[in-house]
Design a protein around this nucleic acid. Structure first.
Length: 342
DNA sequence: ACGTATGATTTAAC
DNA sequence: GTTAAATCATACGT
């Protein structure tokens, strides 16, 4: 910091000098068409600074600060600068709430990354415990807990990074502010300008934060596609469950739409969820309708089965000896029509 | 390895 | 909300 003020003071002191004979800068200048000061001059000045002693610079600075015209000059310079800078800057309204960042924030909140801390690392443990506890019907409890664990990991990284950025931002802001305040004793820097600078820094850092948020979102998306889509890592229902469902379907072929209660009962019988029952019936209806012929055999089988069951309940003795051979083809299977209500 | 079966998801209509 | 229909992605049998 002091080096810089020293340098500035040095430059100010040497500003008027022009020394011609440093190499051959003229040719360069002509080639490049630079009307301003020679690069050579600037180099010279910089070199000269290093020759100065600290005391010399300090003395020069002090002299400058104590000059009787200094305050007046300073305020005039400030004013000029304020005008020009402001006119250049134009109207730069404060932070308009970036829709992009809001979107990201919402998403992170929805995914529970930036939301209220739900126990952090213990969330995974709790989920694992819940899965181990064996909640009946919990589909993919173990995988879900795995997902949670990974999500918690992402959340942790996200928060630590965010904290790092925030700390760096405030540190940097402080540093710059101190620097500017210090320099404002020798350079025309108004408080407004400092404010503006701080705003610029904050904008920069918030753009970094947005990158962080964006990449976190991406990570969550990838995780989702890996795990939640892994929900699709389906397992076929067991034979008994399929049997129960098919029995219901074929015995209600004229109107295969189980009520909510029926669904619940079926779900309980098959040890699956109600929505799984709904899925099954949805799939079954459409697939049956699409190709009734293909399902004819199955339909006969279940029709016979239910018939036999009913018969065996009503007249066990008489039916006991006749093993119901599925007389495939001959059985007039009830035909489910799309408009139902046969 | 490949085709089919099957549970889950998505889309659109109601 | 439910549903049909299309579609996805895997399981399963050959």
């Amino acid at each position: 910091m002091d080096d810089q003020t020293r340098m500035l003071a040095g430059l100010a002191g040497l500003g008027g000098l022009s020394q011609g004979d440093v190499g051959d800068p003229d040719s360069v200048r002509k080639q490049l068409g630079q009307p301003q000061q020679d690069i050579g001059d600037i180099l010279q000045q910089i070199m000269a600074i290093t020759d100065e002693s600290l005391d010399e610079a300090q003395a020069r600075k002090h002299a400058l600060n104590c000059h009787r015209m200094k305050p007046a000059l300073f305020s005039v310079l400030c004013e000029i600068k304020e005008k020009t800078v402001l006119s250049i800057r134009g109207i730069q309204d404060e932070d308009p709430p970036d829709p992009q960042i809001m979107r990201l924030d919402n998403m992170l909140l929805a995914e529970g990354v930036s939301g209220p801390e739900k126990g952090g690392g213990s969330a995974a443990a709790a989920a694992a415990a819940a899965a181990a506890g064996g909640s009946p019907g919990a589909d993919g409890g173990i995988e879900h807990s795995d997902y949670r664990a990974k999500l918690a990991q992402i959340r942790q990284i996200y928060h630590s990074e965010l904290e790092k950025y925030e700390q760096a931002c405030s540190e940097f802001t402080n540093h710059v502010m101190n620097l500017l305040r210090e320099q404002s004793r020798t350079r025309p820097i108004s408080p407004k300008e400092i404010e503006r600078m701080v705003a610029i820094i904050h904008r920069k850092f918030s753009s970094i934060q947005m990158q962080l948020k964006q990449s976190t979102c991406e990570a969550v998306m990838i995780l989702r596609s890996r795990f939640l889509d892994a929900r699709r890592k389906r397992r076929n229902f067991n034979k008994q469950a399929t049997e129960v469902l098919n029995e219901y379907f074929y015995s209600h072929l004229s109107n295969p739409y189980p009520s909510e209660e029926a669904k619940e009962e079926l779900a309980k019988k098959c040890a699956i969820t109600v929505s799984q029952v709904s899925n099954w019936f949805g799939n079954k209806r459409i697939r049956y309708k699409k190709n009734i012929g293909k399902f004819q055999e199955e339909a006969n089988l279940y029709a016979v089965k239910t018939a036999v069951d009913a018969a065996s309940v009503s007249a066990q003795a008489s039916q006991a000896n006749s093993p119901a051979t599925p007389n495939s083809g001959g059985y007039p299977a009830p035909c489910y029509t799309p408009d139902g209500r046969l």
